[in-house]
């Protein structure tokens, strides 16, 4: 039996999941006339490694060739390998080095266009962890089972990774063309029927009506409706209201706070809750 397991590529802003696209084709440049013989060896090894799909080896061999003779075309090829490995920032740097060494390059406009395209790419985040059977939420939305590969708009986002017995949260910043690996491993078992999360930069825990709340966090709360404040009284304009399920169930409550109407004013909040069901 042959089963193909595609790494999950969940795309933000509610776009559907996609399988990885086929590898883009190589666009190599030959070495210049008069390329020193000592540099030919590593340059050719780079091409062979590239053709065999060993792009990291190819990158190293091109760098070896550059140590012997620093050439614009070799920097171009390094950029091309980095582009295909989706190492966007390195690729930009290498394309720029190519243009610096070959200011009159006939493909200057094309390379500048390519740099601009790469710079405009949305940032990528890989969200995963150690524990099995985890689900990943970003900005309050369920993206699917861990791991998740995410392309998101610039700015701050909130990630939650929830397992049947634990929870990990991270607020992270995404910049264009950047790639981040968010390893959300669960440091200790934290069972409970409610996960509280949100887009707030701060965190806190508080006691209200005899219950202990924590944001972000996972906690066991009495089943039924809850209406509490957000970390401190009057911080949010409206109560933080949600319904806790039975102890053997789990709900994910995400608090989206907006900017206050006036400096020092209360935070307008939107609360959304999602019932969490783990895959069998």
């Amino acid at each position: 039996m042959v089963a193909a397991i595609a790494a999950i590529a969940a795309v933000a802003e509610a776009a559907p999941s996609t399988a990885p696209a086929p590898a883009p084709p190589a666009r190599r440049k030959p070495p210049p006339e008069g390329f020193p013989a000592e540099a030919i060896g590593p340059f050719v090894e780079a091409i062979l490694a590239d053709k065999a799909g060993n792009l990291k080896v190819a990158e190293r061999r091109y760098e070896d060739a550059n140590k012997v003779s620093d050439q614009a075309s070799t920097h171009y090829n390094i950029a091309d390998v980095q582009r295909r490995m989706e190492h966007w920032l390195e690729a930009i740097k290498s394309y720029r080095k190519y243009l610096e060494l070959a200011p009159g390059a006939p493909d200057r406009a094309e390379v500048e266009r390519l740099i601009a395209q790469i710079e405009a790419r949305p940032g990528t985040a890989v969200i995963d962890g150690e524990e099995p059977d985890a689900l990943v939420f970003v900005d309050g939305k369920l993206l699917g089972p861990s791991p998740v590969v995410l392309q998101v708009s610039d700015g701050y986002h909130a990630a939650d990774r929830i397992t049947p017995t634990g929870h990990a949260h991270r607020r992270f910043e995404v910049k264009p063309a950047h790639s981040d690996h968010l390893k959300l491993s669960i440091s200790r078992e934290e069972p409970g029927n409610v996960v509280l999360s949100g887009n707030l930069a701060s965190s806190g825990s508080w006691r209200d009506n005899g219950n202990q709340y924590k944001l972000p966090g996972r906690m066991a709360l009495p089943p039924g409706p809850h209406a509490t404040y957000l970390v401190t009284p009057r911080r949010a304009c409206t109560p933080l209201a949600f319904t806790a399920p039975q102890p053997d169930e789990l709900v994910y409550v995400f608090v989206e706070a907006g900017a206050p109407a006036r400096p020092g004013g209360c935070l307008p909040i939107k609360v959304q809750q999602t019932k969490v069901r783990f895959p069998p």
């Binding site: 042959v2 089963a3 193909a4 397991i5 399988a19 990885p20 799909g53 792009l55 490995m85 190492h87």
Partner: peptide, 11 residues
Amino acid sequence: LEFDRCRSLDV
């Protein structure tokens, strides 16, 4: 290729 994520696996 050597992407910075779990690559597509054939099992």
